[in-house]
Amino acid sequence: MPGPVQLHGVTGSESFEIIAFRIRDQEFCVRTTTIREIRGWAPSTAVPHSPPDVIGVMNLRGSVIPIIDLAHKLGMKGTEATERSAIVVAEVHDTVVGLVVDGVSDILTIRADQVQPIPEITTSFDRSVAEGIITHESGMICFLNLSRMFAELVPADEAA
């Protein structure tokens, strides 16, 4: 039985907060501390020749930030945004990005030992974007690691 996932900054029974959200009826979550704010859906401005997972850009209080189709980023079918969609504004590698999700579910306080690793048999896929699976009374939540998901945003000098 593999031990608990070694998380950055927390161990054992220490607890931390996550924000859970829904993409295609699946629950995902990220550390709350990585989130700057949550916004309602607003149309974004498309950028020519942008990668498929980039929907466009938007103006966040004067700053232009990219809007990322997180579903596409996670290898799922692209999001079809609705009024009830939300944009989770996160700061990754000092870069602010907007992640489109179908809806924000909750802010939960999770103990570290609640996070379990993803089983080995699934090594065929890049499990680095997920730190583990949180079992919760409302279901299982995939705990995403935005730093690793957006590793390309790491400046070259800090890559290590």
């Binding site: 907060e17 709350t32 949550i38």
Partner: peptide
């Protein structure tokens, strides 16, 4: 309610931060 939820979520985010 949606907006309030969003606001509350943002408040929660701020509180967490």
């Amino acid at each position: 309610a949606f907006q309030t939820n969003l606001l509350a979520l943002n408040a929660g985010v701020e509180a967490a931060r």
